[in-house]
Every structure is written in structure tokens, then in C-alpha cells.
Design a protein around this nucleic acid. Sequence first.
DNA 1: AGTTGGACCTGACTGC
DNA 2: TGCAGTCAGGTCCAAC
Length: 280
Amino acid sequence: MPELPEAETIARQLRDEVLGKTIVRVRAFEARCVRTHGSTREFEQACRGSLITEIRRRGKQIVLTLDASRSLVVRLGMSGRLLVGNPRDARPQHAHIVFSLSSGLELRYIDPRTFGHLSVRSGTELSRLPGFEKLGPEPLSDDLDERELRRRLSRTRSILAVALMNQRIVAGIGKIYSDEICFHARLNPLMPAHSVSLLQARRLLAAMRRVLESAIEHRGTTAADGSYVDLYGRPGGYQKFLAAYQRAGEPCLRCSTSIARVALSNGRGIHFCPKCQRFP
DNA sequence: AGTTGGACCTGACTGC
DNA sequence: TGCAGTCAGGTCCAAC
């Protein structure tokens, strides 16, 4: 499932493939994937003929600037993929939106579960786009230091794992990297977020940067379900380095204790080492 | 207002 | 073998 490193990987590849190209044709086949628009037709018209002038990432979202005046926001949800392909290929299954580009290539949005969606918004200032206003700081930017992280965590009653996945507290972290960051920071993901000390916030921030930067270097994580692939359809490489996520019952890489899985009230699992991430 | 939990959705997997 | 049931989780929204 695409989190910050996966979105960053795709954004970087999009800069190579589609930046400076014009969208000559758009076909949207699934209204759910453009649900912020009145119709698939309206979405197609909003994109058609536009020059892609800039490509950015904010949190888990990818933003393509159109004609230096509008923003095409891509939210991949759980199973969304962006893939470049040859127009001679048959349309892949679940390819709900197909952009034909002036380069001759196609950019396809594929999403079996249709949790993700695309939308065109007016304006290019990210902080003013709908859904972006309340997004927390980027963990890899200077906007976030240990004091700011601690301050943000101190204002919630949630447990640490839930707070890290709260996009209003920090942008871009989901289940995989929440588990990994807590492991590397040696913090128990079930501890109350508001009790994180300044020293612990420092460890958390260091782990955040190390994990996310390394995951970007390896082009993201393709977990067992194989749902994430990059723009060229290749799986990521960071799954080889996972220390906690989906390793329940396997030995901790530090102390060999069996990795635990605790289900949150919504049934979702949190993975951690009960020994080296002991409750404080 | 902050937090929780169900709904959305389908492919992959499990068990009978 | 086949089919029903379960799991996966990002985000929205309703209800505490």
C-alpha cells in the first residue's frame, strides 16, 4: 500500500516520463475514481490538452501541475497504481483512467479496489488544495524537528502507532512505516503518544528519516500481497529490510524474541518486539 | 473537538 | 475442486 516512499518513487519516475508532456487525450471509465468530479466527462475535459509543468509529492499524494495553473491530485488509496505503457497494449484490467501523452506513451491509473481517486483542482499552492490544508509536516523536511514532533504527539490521546499514521500529525506514514519507525526508535507502538519525551521524539525522528530515506532508496516496499509496484511495474526492494511489519512470530533482528502482533480495535495489526520495544 | 469504528472494495488466501 | 468466509488497510463519515 503506497505510503510516502512509494509515492515519492512514483513522483520521481513521473518526472522522467511525463514532465513537459501534454495530455492529448483522457479516457475515464470509472466514476468512482474521479468522484470529486460531477462525471467522468467533466474530469476528462479538465485534463485534456494540458501541459504537465511540475510534479510534486505531499504526504502520500502525487500532484501534477497542469498548465502552471491547476493541480491533478493522485491519491493511490490501497490498491491504486500509476503505470506507463504502450498504447498498442491491450488496456490492463482495472485501468480506470488512461492518459494519452504527447510522447506517445500512455499513463494509466489502475485500481482494483477503487479506494484511490484522481481530481483536478484550481490553483497550484499545495497548502490551499482541498484535503491538504490540515496535513501535518513532511517528515523529511526541516519543518519537522524533535520539538515540533513532540509537541504534535503531546496533543493527542491516541497510542503512538495511531498518532504516527494520523496525517494531520505527520504526513505520509501508514502501517508499514509506522511499525518500522517504532522498531528502529525502540519505542512501544502502544505507548500513549502524549507521553513521548523529547529524547524519545529525537529517536523517533531519526528513525523516521532513516527508514523513509532508505525505503525511497530501495523504491518502496512491495509487501506479501504484491499490491505496490512502481511506474514501470517493478516491485520495490525495501521489503527485504522489514524488521517488524508482517513478521509476527518471526525472530527480532536485534534480540531474537518473537515479534508480536497486537490487533487494534478496528482489527488492524501492529507489529513490534515485546523485548526491545518494551513499554516504558 | 477529538476519537472510534464501520463502510467502502476486491484479490488472495484459508478451511471445510 | 469449489465455494464461503476472512483478511488486507487509507480515508471518509457518522456516532459517541
